[in-house]
Design a protein around this nucleic acid. Structure first.
Length: 572
RNA sequence: GGGUCCAUAGUUCAAUGGAUAAAACAAUCGGCUUCGGACCGGUAGUUGGGGGUUCGAGUCCUCCUGGACCCGCCA
């Protein structure tokens, strides 16, 4: 029987069903010395017109009889307006651990109806390679996808490749002028970096020669008119850029279910707007452009230019509609940086005005910028932390650490393990922070595998697996005894029991950082546990329960790591 | 000018409106006759400012200060 339920029933009875319903009873899980469950009596002060402390004391008197019937509730105290319940630890920990062991990881998800969730991320441009900002986007998107998958939903990961536009022409123009017709192979440069180099070059050159901007504009016109030479150059360089990004995605073990290319869709959406004009939703201006006045803080928005061509938001209207037609999603998440908050407000508003009911199920997952200690990242000026470089550097560092510890390790294991550790360090560093906050990305800190870091989680998992594998040989036959629990064990099991709530919240509030924080705290408590509570040398029945705890821990930690997209290493 | 968001320890950052504001890094002192030292323990230090709502505010409202982003017929 659930202790929480029993306590709630007792409270309802004492307070009086007229004054409070069982669903309204809010139980806190306080810190250790305040008991196992706590009921704040403050809201009752208004009803009874008494001070909360007196109410608490009176409630205890009323409950006395019931409490005698439930010996597992050891005592109840009235402290500072709280009703603190102390449960018999043997029973509390025993039943909690037992239910944790039985629980199938995705059990909760099975109960829910399965939904189709679209996650858009990271949406790169093809004029430059991925940098650490893209990584934040990609990891957030991936983690959200994994969290929804954990709960049994069908997740579709979509990517939008922004492979046309003035930014792409800038790289192209610089290559045409100064590229000597070289290939990335000849230049011995990863192909997307090769393209990106010309984007930086363009920015440098155009500072001295502003006419280059005009030339880029002309190139864009030519591109749109289908000029063969320009299209051929675009095809060649676009492939370089995309091939290079594919390599990076592969390195990150990130896979899409669907990619949309802007070059294929940028003319679409016009029809939607023209239909809107017919219905009188949008208005045609005197200069023959089309727009809508959304009023209030959103203001006026243009949807078609004077020449009838589409703009960014028109294309997004089309993309949203197309995706709904393609997937009939229940929810769609756009993982896009906070600088586009306004854009998405407008987009969703217009979709709503157009009468698409699913517009209410579209969400902008807005995240903050990634800044460096030296200031802002600017691709044009080359002041960025490149994704490939970052991974390589941190991987190299973890390789050195591994070599120190395991000189025997073969090259293949060394390589895969160091990559897993490096990615864990970077992912955790980018996921642990509240989404909406800007991140100050300190490379030195990401290189530090100690403390509040991804490798710390991996390490604690590996320790747990190591203990379990050592015990495998000697068969455990004893049943668990929950007598004489160590304080660390109580804390440990209580934390394990928090997992389902945390995961639920992470999903409902779309906050992967909650998983990261929980996993870290859990790892901390586990580390504390194994320092204080021997397992292999423990007495039989004590050992049995500690093994149960470690099993439960490794399962829970594995779930957390999966949701974060971090590889759970059996050995580290 | 208008809008959105942020401000917590030297630094990086936690805290469903609840009790004593949690950690990590850096600093410093300690712990392997011990299931893996990428570990554990000790020391020290914090809610930008003024009002308000509330039994209770780091959290909600308001003003101020400081910072980020947006308000393109760029994407």
């Amino acid at each position: 029987m659930d202790f929480e339920e029993k306590i709630k029933e007792a409270i309802v009875k004492a307070v009086g069903p007229a004054n409070i319903k069982k669903e309204e009873v809010f139980l806190e899980k306080p810190k250790e010395n305040f008991g196992d469950y706590a009921f704040p009596c403050f809201p009752l002060a208004k009803i009874f017109k008494k001070n909360p402390h007196d109410i608490a004391r009176e409630l205890i008197e009323k409950m006395e009889k019931d409490l005698k019937k439930t010996p597992e509730i050891e005592k109840v105290e009235a402290v500072a307006g709280y009703l603190n319940f102390f449960i018999d630890k043997e029973k509390l920990i025993g039943t909690t651990l037992n239910s944790l062991s039985k629980k199938i990881p995705a059990k909760k998800g099975m109960k829910e109806k399965k939904e189709t969730i679209l996650v858009e991320s990271p949406g790169p441009n093809t004029n430059k390679p991925l940098h650490v900002g893209h990584l934040r986007n990609l990891f957030i998107g991936d983690s959200i996808a994994r969290i929804f998958q954990f709960f049994g939903n069908k997740v579709v990961r979509v990517d939008v490749i922004n492979d046309r536009g003035i930014h792409v022409c800038k790289s192209m123009l610089a290559y045409q002028k100064w590229g000597d017709n070289k290939t990335p192979e000849q230049a011995k440069r990863k192909s997307d970096h090769f393209v990106g180099d010309f984007y930086v070059l363009f920015s440098q050159k155009s500072k001295q020669n502003p006419k280059l901007e005009e030339e880029a504009q002309e190139m864009l016109k030519k591109w749109e008119q289908g000029d063969k030479e320009t299209i051929d150059l675009w095809k060649k360089m676009n492939k370089w850029a995309i091939d290079g990004m594919k390599q990076t995605y592969a390195l990150l073990n990130f896979k899409h279910d669907r990619q949309y290319f802007e070059s294929e869709t940028y003319k679409q959406g016009k029809e939607i707007v023209l239909n809107g004009v017919k219905k009188g939703i949008f208005k045609k201006n005197e200069d023959s452009s089309v727009g809508i006045d959304l009023g209030g803080e959103l203001g006026e928005k243009i949807l078609l230019r004077q020449d009838g061509t589409t703009v960014y938001i028109t294309q997004d209207l089309y993309m949203a509609k197309k995706r709904y037609e393609d997937y009939k999603f229940n929810k769609m998440f756009y993982v896009v940086a906070s600088e586009q908050n306004y854009h998405f407000k407008v987009l969703f508003k217009i979709l709503d005005i157009l009468g698409y009911k699913w517009s209410k199920e579209c969400f902008h997952i807005s995240y903050g910028m990634v800044n460096l200690p030296s200031g802002k990242m600017k691709s044009r000026e080359g002041t960025i932390i490149d994704a490939d470089d970052l991974i390589r550097e941190i991987k190299e560092d973890s390789k050195q650490e591994l070599k120190k510890r395991y000189p025997e390790l073969n090259e293949k294991d060394l390589d895969s393990r160091s990559l897993a550790i490096a990615l864990s360090a970077i992912k955790f560093a980018l996921l642990k922070v509240d989404l909406k906050k800007d991140i100050l990305f300190n490379k030195e800190e990401a290189l530090d595998f100690e403390g509040f870091s991804g490798p710390y989680l991996q390490y604690s998992y590996a320790r747990a697996r190591s203990i379990l594998s050592k015990l495998k040989k000697s068969k455990v036959t004893s049943r668990s005894s929950f007598k004489d629990l160590d304080e660390q064990e109580i804390i440990f099991v209580k934390k394990l029991a928090d997992f389902s709530n945390t995961a639920e919240r992470a999903k409902n509030e779309i906050k992967p950082d909650l998983i990261a924080l929980y996993a870290y705290e859990l790892a901390q408590i586990f580390n504390n546990f194994y320092h204080n509570c021997p397992v292999i040398k423990a007495e039989k029945t004590e050992q049995a329960r500690r093994i149960e705890m470690i099993h439960s821990f490794s399962k829970t930690m594995k779930n957390c790591l999966d949701m974060l997209g971090i590889v759970a290493l059996e050995e580290m």
